[in-house]
């Protein structure tokens, strides 16, 4: 699944290791404050469907994080030692981030033993399912809130993301025509043959762009 750790995550992990607790608390507070602005639907649904206290325990860090979802909204803080929670998720930081940002399927991670979830499974499942409804960018948010590196990195990544999106939209458009043909009783094979090359070309280009996105932080 996640092969190798992308550079932004390295930065984030380094940041988490180096930052003194008060500074880290400030960053977390700012991320918490930005959530209702950037993801109002997500926050509303989390509060309604998955209220509770969720502990995140990266096995490769000394800190643990507590996400409180309740009437006060969604608040991310550093967890105190022995902090009580409804459910806890344990695994490498990269895994936890991939899960939270929707890149990794939590069942897959559980099957592979990359994570373990303990506590109230009903809440944990609700939390996971609600979170999966929207794309959030924790690493980006984190980096955007500390360090001079953030702006150029963010701009480069955004540019590439836009190009990937455009290419993907074209691919979906081609695909739509095939499906219309298939569902309306035309011979889809004919259509497929005609558009096959086009799809291949687009897929190739999307692949290239995606690889560049992955490499982006190193190349900027």
């Amino acid at each position: 699944m996640t092969t190798g750790i992308p550079a932004p995550l390295h930065l984030m992990r380094a940041g988490l290791r180096m930052l003194p607790a008060p500074a880290l608390r400030l960053v977390l507070r700012r991320i918490s404050a930005s959530l209702p602005r950037n993801h109002p639907d997500l926050v509303r649904r989390l509060v309604r469907v998955a209220p509770g206290r969720y502990l995140f325990e990266p096995t490769d860090l000394t800190q643990r994080f507590l996400l409180c979802i309740g009437d006060g909204g969604v608040i991310l803080t550093l967890a105190a030692p022995g902090e009580a929670a409804d459910a806890a998720m344990r695994g490498k930081l990269a895994m936890l981030i991939d899960l939270l940002e929707g890149r990794l399927d939590s069942d897959t991670a559980l099957f592979a033993r990359d994570i373990i979830i303990v506590g109230d499974m009903n809440r944990a499942v609700a939390f996971r399912n609600i979170l999966d409804g929207e794309t959030i960018n924790l690493v980006g948010d984190f980096l955007a809130r500390f360090g001079p590196l953030a702006p150029p990195l963010g701009r480069a990544a955004a540019r590439l993301h836009r190009r990937v999106d455009a290419a993907r939209r074209r691919l979906v458009g081609v695909r739509d025509r095939v499906h219309r043909a298939a569902h309306h009783g035309h011979d889809p094979n004919e259509d497929l043959a005609r558009t096959g090359a086009q799809i291949d070309d687009l897929r190739h280009r999307v692949g290239q762009l995606e690889r560049r996105v992955r490499r982006a932080p190193e190349t900027t």
Partner: peptide, 10 residues
């Protein structure tokens, strides 16, 4: 249907 977008996409 119980799995995430990442699974569906892949």
């Amino acid at each position: 249907r119980q799995r995430s977008r990442a699974y569906v996409a892949q």
